[in-house]
Design a protein around this nucleic acid. Structure first.
Length: 478
RNA sequence: GCCUCAAUAGCUCAGCUGGUUAGAGCGGCGGACUGUUAAUCCGUAGGUCCAAGGUUCAAGUCCUUGUUGAGGCGCCA
């Protein structure tokens, strides 16, 4: 066989009359004659027309959905209606057979749950092919966005010694034998005998390390896996997920919001520009699904319109205090339609309140800032009112919180006082405090849940369908 | 962790207030077909009704417990 040409290339350049070789996996085989071949390079398949006179029966019998094959032949304009070009095959080579009796991916609609159980094969479907091509484009765009703005990609550690960040329950990392755990004289586990000579965990966030980088390199970002051992059972949480965390020296909270909004729009625009076919397919799928729903549950906008709308409008920016005023005066609050009725300033906002603000009141993404310090983390800069901190959350329709960030407390005394208040051990975080001792300065950053972004852009309703192999409580298959 | 719902053929589902031998579409298998578009046509096989226990003359259907999954809530990104 000749060197293979990718199908996306052929679909784009259409070299009519040329002899080419393509290799991929069979999606369908019709009329004992037409193979729809997909090689992953494009959403669309290429049609291979087989000349039965030229092709052995033993080869025809091996062509089924899932079969890996190569085809060499002349590229011609298609006589059929479904495609512009096709290959008239002179030679077919079977690489790998696919037993039709046991191959789970049939040319028909499968449920997302079924495909999740077959996550090793779901890449071969239209939907998941589209989702993972978009996921790649978004990951790539993260890097170009920051690189173009002269940020440095900082690799924060996956294994950390600190468990003091308060971002969630952590997974322990150990080489101790669970059947033979060493104890010290006080009867506690003797971590001195463990691999690192101390207790270690998987990281819940690269933020603290990113701050160290930012206060020397100026502007950095991390983009890596993070781990939370929370028993969260929702369509928006994973135990292992990827997080993007930029950190910028001398940025205040408003610069932080500008950066985040600019980044989110950049990512959406990149997807619209580079994933047209995949997005159009997902858009159509969503339309089909929505048409099955009762009228009042259908979204006002469908996928591509929603993405366009986000690009064309400034995000709403309101303080927590303003948000509470809006909620106090809202119909569902007055009529006690909320499960948690807002009664006074200081209440933590529940997802029903966030959804009201985003989906009913503003009808666009909302940036909420200046939260009560009681409901936020120790490292956030305390405002002059001594009641609120310089925190901001970006809320997206259908997703909820997609970004959480803050201006960091750069004053050593205030930070130490906050840590004491919240019982956070200072000795473990001496390095974090050192940054405030030597050349401290204002700085800000945020975390973007990468899968939540992929969810928003693809319109997939369950976060388990936008990461190849999801890890959730009770589930770590593959 | 809490609340709600679900589990029937390989897949997607129907199966009414308990009542003969549990159905359909798709897929599989056998056959036909050289312009098909999730092809079509003819034929055919395929079920421990999630598991265990219970109520009843009789359970896919009712009850209890468990398992798995989904949706919602909390934690967050």
């Amino acid at each position: 066989m000749n060197k293979r040409t990718r199908i996306d290339q052929l679909l784009e350049t259409k070299p009519i009359g040329e002899k080419v070789t393509v290799k991929g996996w069979v999606r369908s085989f019709r009329n004992n004659q037409f193979v729809a071949l997909n090689d992953g390079s494009d959403f669309d398949n290429l049609q291979i027309v087989i000349d039965r006179g030229k092709t052995d029966d033993s080869i025809l019998r091996k062509i089924h959905p899932g079969t890996a094959l190569g085809a060499t032949g002349t590229l011609v304009e298609s006589r059929g209606k479904g495609q512009a070009i096709e290959i008239h095959a002179d030679e077919i080579v079977i690489y790998g057979e696919s037993d039709p009796e046991t191959y789970p991916i049939q040319p028909k609609k499968h449920s997302k749950e079924f495909l999740r159980e077959n996550a090793h094969l779901r890449f071969r479907t239209n939907t998941f092919g589209a989702v993972f091509r978009i996921r790649h484009q978004l990951a790539y765009a993260i890097h170009t966005f920051f690189h173009e703005r002269k940020f440095y990609y900082l690799h924060s550690p996956i294994i950390t010694a600190s468990d003091a960040e308060g971002a969630g329950e952590m997974f322990r990392v150990t080489t101790l034998d669970p059947a033979n755990i060493p104890f010290n004289e006080q009867g506690q586990v003797d971590f001195k005998k463990d691999f690192f000579g101390r207790e270690t965990n998987l990281t819940v966030s690269g933020q603290l390390e990113a701050e160290l980088g930012a206060l020397a390199l100026g502007q950095v970002y991390t983009f890596g896996p993070t781990f939370r051992a929370e028993n969260s059972n929702t369509s928006r949480h994973l135990a292992e997920f990827w997080m993007v965390e930029p950190e910028v020296a001398f940025n205040d909270l408003y610069d932080n919001m500008d950066l985040a909004e600019e980044m989110l729009k950049y990512l959406i625009r990149h997807a619209l520009d580079h994933c047209k076919k995949d997005l159009e397919f997902l858009h159509q799928q969503a339309e089909k699904e929505d048409s099955q729903k009762p009228r009042n549950e259908r979204p006002e906008m469908n996928l591509i319109d929603r993405l366009q709308f986000c690009l064309e409008h400034d995000f709403a920016r309101i303080s927590y205090t303003e948000a509470i005023d809006i909620l106090l005066n809202s119909k569902p609050n007055k009529k006690k339609k909320f499960k948690f009725v807002i009664e006074e300033w200081g209440a933590d906002l529940q997802s029903e309140h966030e959804r009201y603000l985003v989906e009913k009141h503003f009808k666009k993404p909302v940036i909420l800032y200046d939260y009560p310090k009681e409901i936020k983390s120790f490292y956030m800069k305390v405002n002059e009112d001594n009641k609120t901190v310089r925190a901001m959350d970006i809320l997206f329709p259908g997703i909820g919180e997609i970004v959480g960030g803050s201006e960091r407390e750069e004053n050593l005394d205030v930070l130490v006082a906050r840590m004491d208040e919240l019982n956070i051990p200072k000795d473990e975080l001496y390095w974090y405090l050192d940054i405030r001792k030597f050349g401290s300065c204002p700085h800000s950053g945020y975390g973007l849940g990468f899968e939540r972004m992929v969810q928003f852009v693809t319109g997939m309703s369950n976060i388990r369908d936008v990461i190849p192999f999801p890890r959730t409580p009770g589930n770590a298959s593959f």
